[in-house]
Write a protein that binds this DNA or RNA. Structure first.
Lengths: 125, 125
DNA sequence: TTGACATATTCCTATATAGGAATACATTGG
DNA sequence: CCAATGTATTCCTATATAGGAATATGTCAA
């Protein structure tokens, strides 16, 4: 029973490769009617509409009706949570600190922590 | 029929909030036995094992058997594709360029493009 | 109005997967 | 070998959702 209940979450929204394709079309920041997008990606119109709907619920795109068209535009700010989250790990590949050295440091730290931490206190319970 | 078939994709892997919790525990780069993680997050052991399995298949963690333990460690490089993908949109919120101005520029460009592009050629078909 | 066009929605079927419970498997100490 | 410990796997049920097809809805033009 997937109680996960994370629809409308931006992380879930971008998990779909098709959805990222749609986002790629919108990436230049301009607005597009649904059919414009349909022509750019290899998907049926209902699929595109559904994906746009999901992206909209996740706050990744904005929509405005214009005549018989619905113009969609990327709302990049909706992707910021993802950026903020993943940015934390950036240092692991940007500093090209010697991996061996890094690991040695971590192990030393680990050992210290185990001295205070092992079996006597088991986290907070 | 969700032919999506994107299991083992890092974007899908991190879509699960629980999985991000597990990653948060590993975020310091140190290695952890499964039970260490179980104690840190509020989840049953089988769930943690399953999530670790998914993260492992997605290349987000590495695992090494040590005695009867399995030590898991974050493989931050596995998250790089996400970082690279989302980084493209960074400029939309970092430059605090006047939104109105930005939009005007885009519209002008849009208009120009429509002159060459509308109805005459319909993308590549 | 009516018809053409643009887009959304609904119905269907199939897949993926979360979590709980029970259990299997693996490793080590004795 | 055996018991204990650490972890993975399997079975189950329920949810979320993708895509296709058909259709509904909305909006403009004449």
């Amino acid at each position: 029973m997937a109680r996960t209940a994370h629809p409308d979450d931006v992380f879930s929204a971008i998990a779909e490769p098709r959805r990222r394709e749609v986002i790629a079309v919108l990436a230049n920041g301009r607005e597009y009617a649904v059919n414009d997008i349909v022509l750019s990606v290899k998907m049926a119109q209902p699929s595109v509409s559904k994906h746009l709907g999901a992206l909209h619920r996740a706050g990744v795109v904005t929509m405005v009706r214009r005549g018989r068209h619905r113009m969609y535009r990327l709302n990049a700010a909706g992707l910021k949570p993802v950026h903020d989250w993943v940015k934390v790990f950036e240092r692991y590949w940007t500093h090209q600190i010697d991996e061996i050295k890094q690991r040695a440091e971590r192990k030393a730290l680990e050992r210290m922590i185990r001295l205070n931490d092992s079996s006597t206190e088991k986290k907070e319970e």
